[in-house]
Amino acid sequence: MSNHAAVTLTIGDITHQRTDAIVNAANSSLLGGGGVDGAIHRAAGRELQEACRRLRATTLPNGLPAGQAVATTAGRLSAQWVIHTVGPIWSPIEDRTHLLMSSYRECLRVADELAVTTIAFPAVSAGAYGWPVLEAARVAITTVSTTPTQVAEATFVLHDEPTFGIFEAALLELRG
Rank of each mutant, 00 (worst) to 15 (best):
I11P: 01
G12N: 05
G12P: 06
D13E: 06
T15I: 06
T19D: 02
A21T: 04
I22G: 00
S29G: 11
G32H: 07
D37K: 02
H41M: 04
R42L: 12
R42M: 11
R42Y: 12
G45T: 10
R56S: 08
A57F: 06
L60P: 00
P61V: 02
P61A: 03
N62G: 08
A66G: 09
A66E: 15
G67H: 06
Q68D: 13
A69R: 11
T72L: 09
T72G: 10
T72I: 09
T73N: 14
A79E: 02
Q80M: 13
V82Q: 01
V82K: 00
V82N: 00
H84A: 10
V86R: 03
W90Q: 03
P92S: 13
E94P: 09
E94G: 08
L99A: 04
S102V: 02
Y104M: 08
R105G: 04
C107I: 02
L108I: 06
R109W: 07
V110M: 04
L114Q: 09
L114D: 07
A115P: 07
V116R: 00
V116F: 00
T117G: 10
F121P: 00
P122D: 05
P122V: 01
S125E: 12
Y129L: 11
P132Q: 07
V133I: 13
A137E: 04
T142N: 12
T143I: 13
S145I: 14
T147K: 02
P148C: 09
T149Y: 02
V151G: 01
E153S: 07
F156I: 03
F156L: 06
P162Q: 09
T163D: 07
F164M: 05
F164W: 10
G165L: 09
G165T: 10
I166E: 08
F167Y: 15
F167R: 01
A170H: 01
A170D: 01
L171F: 10
L172Q: 10
E173V: 01
G176R: 15
